[in-house]
Nucleic acid binder design. Structure first.
Lengths: 400, 400
DNA sequence: TCTTTTAAGTCAATTGTCTTGACTTATTTG
DNA sequence: CAAATAAGTCAAGACAATTGACTTAAAAGA
């Protein structure tokens, strides 16, 4: 009698879904192509001139776009391009790493306005959460002082930290593995502490998000970011969207197993900054380690070069694996590695292993260098709420 | 002056996109849950009762749904469930393999109505295309005889064959690698030869499509089908959709490199029916090879068991890799391997390697058995046009 | 048995959003 | 200076979902 089976279904949509989608499509087109006239937008989106005009008027009233100088392009009435207003929206990005946390404020077009960092005390979330909340608060306050409208145009707080999430791991007691943070109800805590919409992704995914919004993956539908940081992971842009898997752990290739020296080991143990620090015998906790590595790499320090040679073998394999499995348009090396190290790694990885990605008509290189500054992860974290609020996506048309 | 840069943008949508989406959502809900009343559908899709009623009337007129016996569920007017009409749509699926081709006809709910197979002569597309077209024509003719409406309800021809596509490979002259087929303009030829909409996917993707429509991946958003056939590949259901990559070659894990016996080799060389045939010294061209292997496996033939032991090592690694990289809800072993072999493979793969997929709250097993009959690939090929025509997808709301 | 409650489903009017076609404006071309 | 071309607006129309009142049919309770 009481048939309470849950019914599975996709949500339907209605006029508002249509309208929301079309707004996003227009914002996206302006982000990808720069300023465009209403007529250009109508052609590109296949909407009618009139529809575009109506939406543009709305967007202008909402402070998201403004008109630029008219341009004459041959016959006919000159067109009036419209461009995104950077101050149309803001987001805060937060990176939580092993011994450091960084918070930044970005605007609608991805400019970094403010960046602050702080040391994270040992002791996990119990002692770390107040530090993190304090840092976010500082950035938020400064943003408020700079731009009066910022507070009400703040679309969310994006958080990035190393994964995997929700797994009981071996060596979970090792503070470097961040197990305590990974099992902590971070979203709820930060949401309650800030009153903002909070989202979480792993650091590789955050890098991919950043590359997609303003970097080498801009406008690409299929790209994989190979993130080399303290750990190693892949951020996946598949079909135009970030892919996170069923539990947010997709792309954790650091945990992929490979046979090296006759025994099965994790990729992470062979090619990551952690393995470099170990190789060099330096303390990963040292505050200036990033610039130290950068300097030594730039000076072609033989110890570093030796590690690069070794790591390149496994990274070459990783690129081959990524190309074979994902069939992307390009692979982007990005993230926590200093620029001098990253460029040398890429050089050492040449020639890449033959793969399905060898095609005569490639418009993009198989492997390219992405962002390598220490703030890249935070930028990606900040890009997530912006993208969530403004990018065209299937779920955005569906009813709540 | 002449600024002819192409403008990149997502397409907008309008009322028809909305309506098309809502129709698809309803059909999808009926496929996933079986017959549902209009009120149930309204709740599940978040559409209003009235909207659902309007759409149901349309769908009934189009012959896609019919009412069932009314059911009393407590107080209130009894509800009238509606279910999909199997004869509402048909599709033809075509598998092209190394020495054999199979064509089937399926209906809207995935029933296989007709299946025919033929030997493919050596010589590639030049000699094979007429055979393939003939086979499709036979199935189509028989379908027409059985169901008067079938011809005008035929939504397309789905083709599946081994990948990768569009690559110049080593050993391309080897007829077993099907290089000539892979570079042949198959879509155009079949489209011209049949007048149908034709789509192409690799055999692993086809299996995943079949598992999604009527098999173990039914209703799952994140599932990977590990296809073990003459080659080995992965069919990827990511975020509710089949993922094919930038060039249709995503999931070609057979070409992934691993170190075995001290040297780098492809997974395909270690664990695939090709490697089994080689191990057994049998001719892969033998017409009854499938049942031969099935019988020998069922009888626990020691040579087969030896191969299974060896292949299980690499397949365990594959499952670990898939879980690590895709973070799916489940992995499904499916495809061209006979049932007796597949079940023994799964047993031999236990225990699986520890991975991110080890979670206390798993609702599904990490590895399960999917379809293993020789027709699975053709079924998946046939499922593609049906899914394309009736499943909710982002691209279906966009303007042409 | 009769009334009330509850739920399915319909009817008719309304609303929100895109589309259509005619029109205006501004520029280049000949 | 007229014709051609393109950007952009105006006002009416079309389409599809929504709303709220209504009808129908069954169960529950008095």
């Amino acid at each position: 009698m009481n048939d309470i089976r849950p019914i599975r279904a996709t949500s339907g949509t209605n006029h508002e879904g249509t309208s929301a989608h079309n707004r996003r499509v227009i914002i996206d087109a302006l982000r990808l192509n720069g300023a465009l006239s209403r007529a250009d937008l109508a052609r590109a989106t296949r909407l009618t001139k009139q529809t575009v005009s109506n939406i543009m008027e709305e967007l202008e009233n909402d402070g998201l776009v403004t008109s630029r100088e008219t341009v004459r392009r041959g016959r006919g009435q000159p067109s009036t391009p419209y461009g995104l207003v950077p101050e149309g929206a803001f987001a805060i990005g937060l990176q939580i790493d092993r011994h450091i946390t960084r918070a930044i404020a970005v605007d609608l077009v991805g400019n970094v306005l403010i960046g602050k960092e702080a040391n994270l005390p040992a002791g996990g979330p119990a002692t770390g959460t107040p530090v993190v909340l304090q840092l976010v608060q500082e950035v938020r306050t400064e943003l408020k002082l700079r731009t009066a409208q910022a507070e009400k145009r703040l679309v969310g707080l994006g958080v990035a930290m190393p994964g995997p999430f929700g797994i009981e791991q071996d060596g979970d007691d090792n503070p470097w593995m961040m197990g305590a943070w990974q099992r902590f109800p971070l979203l709820e805590t930060l949401s309650a502490g800030t009153g903002l919409n909070v989202t979480l992704q792993n650091d590789a995914a955050a890098c991919a998000t950043a590359e997609r919004m303003v970097g080498a993956a801009h406008g690409l539908d299929h790209a994989v970011c190979l993130y080399v940081g303290y750990g190693i992971g892949a951020g996946l842009i598949l079909g135009g969207d970030l892919y996170s898997g069923a539990h947010g752990n997709a792309g954790e290739i650091g945990m992929a197993l490979l046979t090296a020296g006759g025994r099965l080991t994790q990729l992470e143990h062979r090619a990551s900054l952690a393995s470099l620090y170990e190789h060099l015998g330096v303390d990963p906790m040292a505050p200036d380690i990033y610039s130290l590595i950068d300097r030594r790499a730039a000076a072609d320090d033989p110890e570093i070069l030796a590690w690069i040679e070794k790591a390149a073998i496994d990274l070459r394999w990783s690129v081959h694996l990524i190309e074979t499995i994902f069939d992307p348009q390009t692979v982007i090396l990005c993230g926590g590695a200093p620029a001098a190290l990253a460029t040398r790694l890429i050089d050492a990885m040449q020639p890449l292993l033959p793969s399905n990605a060898d095609r005569a008509d490639r418009p993009l290189p198989r492997l390219q260098l992405g962002m390598t500054d220490p703030w890249a992860v935070a930028r990606g974290a900040a890009a997530e709420p912006i993208g969530h609020a403004f990018d065209p996506r299937f779920s955005a048309i569906l009813k709540a």
